[in-house]
Amino acid sequence: MKKKVIGLIDGQSGNIGSINKAIKDIIKGKPYQLKIIKSHFNYTSFDKIILPGQGAYATLMSNLKKLKIIQPLKKYLENNSSYLGICVGMQILSDWGYEDKTTRGLGIISGDIKKFRNKKLIIPHMGWNTINLNKDDTVITNSFDMKDFYFVHSYIFQNIKKSDVLAFTLYDQKFPSIVKKGNIYGVQFHPEKSHKHGLNLIKNYILKS
């Protein structure tokens, strides 16, 4: 049987060690193989792509540009191929990011990435917070409803269509914590740092989507 190919993009935006290890543990003994993407790639040769990210929107976009990853990634996503974006890896699915400077995103899920509204809020939103499901699917099953995940971010998805929001979280204001459009998923939290529920989410994404 032909193995399914999972691409893990190293956008030089934080450490990919934990997510790399989580994926390897999940696919051990199963018909999958993991490839690290660090430069231009053939978008038709991947079944799934995961992009973890930390830090700033503009930094990740400029890293991906330098690595010549933007163009194939855009084609891959426009094809509605399977994708999981983590934190900034989710945020760059939007049209625009307003962190540090205004940066054009991949434009896959319409909306902008802007700061939390309340200027008195403790920022970054750092720690474990609850996700509330609007609807479930094979990856984001009901079992994740009201569970805690680990967040570290200061910017949130705004002006997003309600139908693209799978789950929201409350930190002074409601914000999208899981977005989905077709086969494209994005999570604002870090599943690779979110203990068993986080690992289950990655597992579901790999094995059930």
Partner: peptide, 8 residues
Amino acid sequence: SLRHGSQC
């Protein structure tokens, strides 16, 4: 923080 991001 500029190199690695404030969050870390």
